[in-house]
Nucleic acid binder design. Structure first.
Length: 722
RNA sequence: GCGCCUCUAGCUCAAUGGCAGAGCAACGGACUCUUAAUCCGCAGGUUGGGGGUUCGAAUCCCCCGGGGCGCACCA
């Protein structure tokens, strides 16, 4: 199977009419261009013997990838784009049998030129110093600022399977590796100035040298201007007004620019890296790649000074969050560490590498986007596992996999496990289930998909659950998070009388309902018919009372995993106008009630079916509440207002052949009709009429007002309850 | 001003010169019954507009338009 995968790569079959993974395309072009004896001098500058030995087995000219990052702030996800673009090219080169290495540098000789949010006071005195010379903030366990910042990025290399060898510019300069390049570049300062003028249009003074030294007095490097190179030393001035963001100390003198006492400005440092390391591939973000931009200037300088051709560029777009560029200085964006905890390594590689470098990756860590990412990756894995895929699919899959332990000289595909198709609960489902308390998440999810997960799927699910937890903890905004409220939230005061009545009806039905998801879910619908209310409005009321929002996960399951007594108390917490409900919903004559029963359950018309059960229950409406509803705050009702409504009635509960409960109310007239004698008489008339029509009629005892524990035994007689 | 990317079904995107497709959403249906855990089905398009190359164009070239971003100060 691994062999088949290798053969599927576009390069192996040479069928250019089929889609080619972008990194494979670049590797092909590199192989083609370096195979031919070019006019460049790159071959004369092999990567000075520090190659990763693992790469030595490859055939053909060695490719040296280089990339770097200035450790000037907390790393955000965008920093990973360049890292992974180069890593993808590295893997493609190795998969094609080419020798290739990947170096990644920390540009920690650069001056501190901005104040990271939250660290202003600590950093301000050090503006202009090399980043490696700025102390880490108090309480941070790092030797210096640059190390602290860059380790955040380097820390994800291993888990992501990034095959880069890291280095630090302070070490490069101190070791003297750059001394010859510094000498050559400064000697060619005139040519450099000319390139600056010609390519980017920037004018430099005639005595300007492309170099900055560390001020011997204040230690700043961003504030010094340099001139007059004599082959051993340069003259410098630490100027107060050289840059706006830092102030020099005013010192001046002569100093040797070698061995770490000076650094080249950015564009020339690039030149030196390319020359000294023999770099053949170095991509750059679009901010560098514009016409007349730093990349073009550097390429021209490389040619002017060393007569070499610049490495292959791989221009790449930004990684946007919600369509906007991330900015660590403005605190906008997604922290690298958060992102690494949010999505598993494979997915992080996948999201960065599936789009060609020149296209922006727009990723918003909201539920829909993250869920889609998981879906997309599952689909890719299944596609590759099934074999119904293109070479580009296979290449993307291989490139997206993070498995550092198996990385080999040729990409290690021969030892990689074959992809296994998976059928896992989607991310948003996992998020949903995780938020239900007291729930065995895995068991619930397995129940959801109707089978047990394999061991492999289980480990992927564990990963997904960890992601879901991170999402809930770090990324979910209040609108996306469901949180069980400890009391009825204030927003629930807006529920109308019908919804409030629904909650009370539901509470009564849940008194002796089996405490299980499906049964509770059925009770939710029963309560909607019994109120009556549109199910949607009833559900909405439940979500309002428990979650403080209008929708939520399947309500029956939500409630079933809570404590019954607490659920009942919560449902009854909001008072409602019982008399008003009766006025709005009750039948006013016996014949109307009987017609209603016949409409709901056509028992007489279908004698073959089991007779539907009708339960009659006398109910007192004493003007402040209906007895038996559990409403305790009757005194809150204004005296007076219910004077005109029925003072007593009969509830008719009908259980149809499918066990669904329906309810009608029969009001008995004005305030004077409250006598139980009349209730009994009416109930008997209704019962007689219904019995005549073929229904099985039972009567439930009148319920005592404040005590609903004496619930009539027949109430829960329904198919699902037995 | 210069440069890059982008425009395809309601939404997010595939298809890289060979019959315009998927996932969600919608719609229809099933499920002791829609509501953030299920399944099946159906529909959805002048590929931003115009011109050109080609037997054949979403795809390549030119022009126009909409949107996003970058460089013109610094790494």
């Amino acid at each position: 199977m691994p062999v088949a995968i290798g053969m599927l790569r576009a390069m192996a079959d040479g069928d250019v009419s089929r889609p080619v993974f972008w990194a494979d395309q670049i590797a092909m072009e590199l192989a083609a261009s370096t195979a031919a004896p070019a006019t460049d001098g790159i071959a004369e500058h092999p990567a000075d013997g520090r190659d990763d030995p693992a790469s030595a087995g490859g055939a053909g000219p060695a490719q040296v990838m280089n990339d770097s990052k200035t450790p000037s702030g907390r790393a955000h996800v965008g920093a990973l784009r360049g890292v992974l673009v180069h890593d993808a090219v590295l893997r493609s080169c190795r998969a094609a049998g080419m020798a290739a290495t990947y170096r990644f540098g920390s540009d920690d000789m650069d001056p501190l030129d901005e104040l990271s949010p939250g660290l202003e006071d600590h950093l301000r005195p050090h503006l202009g110093k090399p980043l490696h010379a700025v102390p880490a903030p108090p309480g941070v366990d790092a030797p210096d600022l640059a190390t602290w910042f860059i380790d955040e990025l380097f820390g994800v290399f291993e888990p992501l399977g990034v095959g880069a060898v890291t280095y630090r510019m302070r070490d490069v300069y101190r070791s003297g590796q750059f001394d010859d390049a510094i000498d050559a570049i400064v000697r060619h300062a005139g040519a450099v100035r000319e390139v600056y003028r010609r390519v980017s249009g920037s004018q430099r003074p005639d005595d300007w040298l492309p170099l900055q030294v560390v001020c011997e007095r204040c230690g700043r490097i961003g504030t010094t201007s340099v001139s007059d190179y004599d082959g051993e030393t340069v003259a410098y001035q630490c100027r107060r007004d050289l840059v706006a963001w830092a102030e020099g100390c005013g010192a001046s003198g002569r100093v040797s620019p070698f061995g770490g006492r000076a650094k080249l400005p950015w564009k020339l440092e690039w030149v030196a890296k390319w020359h000294v390391f023999g770099v053949t591939v170095e991509g750059a973000g679009k901010d560098h790649t514009t016409r007349g931009g730093s990349r073009e200037v550097a390429a021209a300088c490389l040619e002017a000074v060393f007569d070499e051709v610049a490495p292959r560029n791989v221009p790449y777009e930004f990684f946007l969050v919600g369509g906007r560029k991330m900015s660590s200085s403005r605190g906008r964006g997604v922290a690298l560490g958060d992102m690494a905890r949010l999505v598993p390594p494979d997915l992080l590689r996948f999201v960065m590498l599936r789009v060609p470098p020149r296209r922006a990756v727009d990723f918003e860590p909201d539920l829909a986007t993250v869920s889609r990412l998981f879906d997309d990756y599952d689909r890719l894995v299944n596609k590759v596992a099934s074999g119904a895929c293109t070479p580009a699919d296979v290449a993307l899959y291989e490139t997206a996999r993070a498995h550092p332990a198996e990385r080999g000289p040729l990409g290690g595909s021969s030892v990689r496990p074959a992809p296994v198709s998976r059928s896992l609960p989607p991310f948003d489902t996992v998020v949903s289930v995780l938020q239900l308390p007291h729930l065995d998440t895995v068991a619930a999810l397995e129940r959801g998909i109707g089978r047990q997960l394999s061991a492999g799927e289980r480990s992927v699910l564990d990963e997904r659950m960890a992601s879901a937890r991170t999402w809930l903890e770090v990324f979910a905004d209040p609108a996306e998070r469901i949180e069980l409220q400890h009391a009825v939230p204030a927003s629930a005061e807006a529920l109308d009388q019908r919804q409030r009545a629904y909650l009370h009806v539901l509470a009564d039905l849940l008194e002796d309902c089996p405490w299980q998801g499906t049964a509770v879910q059925a009770a939710l619908f029963d309560a909607a018919r019994c109120t009556p209310i549109a199910p949607r409005d009833g559900f909405s009321a439940v979500y309002q009372v428990f979650l403080g929002r209008r929708d939520g996960p399947r309500a029956g399951y939500l409630l079933a995993f809570l404590d019954r007594a607490q659920v009942l108390a919560r449902l009854r917490a909001l008072p409602y106008d019982a008399a008003g409900l009766w006025q709005a919903t009750a039948c006013t004559s016996i014949s109307e009630a009987v017609d209603w029963v016949a409409e709901v359950v056509p028992g007489a018309a279908a004698p073959a079916t089991a007779p539907a059960e009708v339960v009659l229950r006398p109910v007192a409406i004493d003007g402040v509440g209906v007895s038996g509803t559990g409403m305790s705050g009757g005194a809150a009702q204004a005296p007076g207002s219910p004077a005109s409504v029925a003072a007593a009635g009969v509830e008719l509960d009908v259980l149809d052949s499918q066990g669904r409960r329906h309810r009608a109310r029969l009001a008995l007239g004005g305030p004077g009709a409250a006598g139980s004698r009349q209730q009994v008489a009416v109930a008997e008339q209704v019962a007689a009429a219904l019995t005549e029509a073929g229904y099985e009629v039972r009567s439930a005892p009148r319920r005592a007002a404040p005590d609903h524990s004496a619930a009539p035994g027949g109430r829960a007689r329904r198919a699902s309850a037995g």
